[in-house]
Simulated assay, not measured.
Amino acid sequence: MDAAVHQTQPSPSLVGVGVSHARDPVAAVREALASLRETGSCFVLAFVPDALDPHIVVSEMGRLLPSTPVFGCTTAGQITNSGYQDDALLLIAFPKDHFRCASTLIKPLKPVSIEQTATEARRLSTRFQRTANWNRLALIFADGLSKQEDVLVAALEAGLEDVPVCGGSAGHGLAFDETFVLHGGQAHGNAALLVLLETDLSFLELGFDHFLPTEKRMVVTRAVPEERLVLEINGSPAAQEYARLIERDIADLSPQVFAENPVLVRNHNAWHVRAIQQVVGDNALSFFSAIDDGLLLTLGRGQEILRTMDTCLSLPDRAGAKPDFILGFDCFLRRLEIEQNGLTKPASELLKSHRVLGFNTYGEQHRGVHVNQTFVGIAFFPTTERLPF
């Protein structure tokens, strides 16, 4: 499919967008803010590239926007109004005319207390006074190396009950060394940020990948669940057995190979990706999501990634209107696959045409589940008609 056939769409009208490619963090903040049209902001989301120091970014934003909350995180890539980017500081300003917010920082994140996290989320929701006829949703940004997102999102889902929760795990390029969330004028490691929103706009949740299960099955026969580490698959060293099943040499295993050969788990009638991060030590495999002894894994086969993206991002409301913008959290492994297949330009054109803004993640949270190699997001429509979730 030639995504270039999509005509250029106008920029979102409901949020302000500022972008800078400056390599100096202070200069980047100033440039991005200068291009950010004044919206009377309720809050600003900041998605920080790996080349910029997040501590300096959030400090400078706090100095220049002393009365506006700044939320966000470090990233493994950004999705701007030009599509996929690697070096862009992206700012999204949410106007007071359409949004209200409350937030809390969960720190330390590791280990997660299910009861305490659910209680804190419930308390935040209770104290956040409801506005008549406005709808609620929650955004979650978590340390992408904490290995706590599975428990975290389940606890939040329990605490917030009928409020939809959507978000992404912070990244740091392909370094996998440290990640940060932004809150209260600081960049925090080993933390998660919960932002509770109210809006008079209608919105829809979305989540999709492009994989189907194959006939190749495997069983985790030895694991270290708290570290998301698989030592053995089918009774053999994990990396050795995985390489055999995908017909590659162990030396070939890399993020790009993992992206094209994901493993899936079945949850009722749905399949979710359990993405592999890297080979560790003596043929062990480190994962981005929960793993346990006895877990049945199925090798996945990719479908046309651009066609899937175009179809799933096409979300007209009941009146036929397109979203004004889509806040998107797209796994970095999806982007690696796109880049490896020379599809970055048409993929960026698709993201532009559907007005997607967001970042590339180390993992995604959607409907109470932490997933990988998935696009999740929220489409906001220029109407107050309430839509079914």
Rank of each mutant, 00 (worst) to 15 (best):
M1V: 04
A3R: 02
A3D: 04
A4Y: 09
P10Q: 06
S13H: 11
L14D: 04
V17S: 00
V19N: 09
P25H: 07
R30D: 04
L36M: 00
E38A: 13
S41Q: 01
S41G: 02
A46E: 02
F47Y: 15
F47G: 09
D50W: 15
D50R: 12
L52D: 06
P54F: 11
I56G: 07
V57M: 09
S59F: 10
E60L: 04
E60M: 06
L64W: 03
L64F: 11
P66A: 03
P66C: 06
V70L: 03
T75P: 11
G77I: 03
Q78I: 10
S82K: 13
G83L: 00
A88S: 15
P95I: 04
K96G: 06
F99K: 04
S103R: 10
S103F: 11
L109Y: 13
S113H: 10
A121R: 05
L124I: 02
R127I: 04
Q129G: 05
R130L: 06
A132T: 07
W134F: 08
L137M: 08
A138W: 07
L139A: 03
A142T: 12
K147V: 13
D150A: 13
D150C: 00
L152A: 08
L152H: 10
G159A: 06
V163G: 02
P164G: 04
G168M: 03
S169E: 02
A170Q: 07
D177A: 09
E178I: 08
T179M: 09
F180I: 04
L182W: 15
A191T: 08
D200L: 12
S202H: 12
E205T: 05
E205S: 08
D209N: 15
P213A: 02
R217Y: 15
M218R: 09
T221M: 13
V224T: 11
P225W: 01
E226G: 02
E226D: 11
E226N: 13
E227D: 12
E227G: 03
R228F: 03
A238R: 13
Y242F: 15
A243D: 12
R244H: 15
L245W: 01
D249R: 13
D249L: 12
I250Y: 15
P255I: 07
P255F: 13
V257G: 08
E260C: 11
P262S: 10
P262Q: 08
L264H: 09
A270Q: 14
I276N: 14
L285K: 15
F287L: 14
A290D: 01
D292T: 01
T298V: 13
G300K: 13
G302A: 14
I305D: 09
I305A: 11
L306V: 05
D310M: 10
D310C: 11
C312D: 09
L313V: 01
L313R: 03
S314A: 11
S314C: 11
A319M: 11
G320I: 05
L333Q: 07
E339W: 02
E339L: 14
Q340L: 08
G342A: 02
T344Y: 01
T344G: 06
L350H: 00
K352I: 08
K352P: 01
S353G: 11
H354W: 09
Y362C: 10
Y362K: 09
G363T: 01
E364F: 01
E364G: 00
H370S: 06
V371M: 01
T374M: 03
T374C: 00
F375E: 00
V376Q: 00
V376S: 00
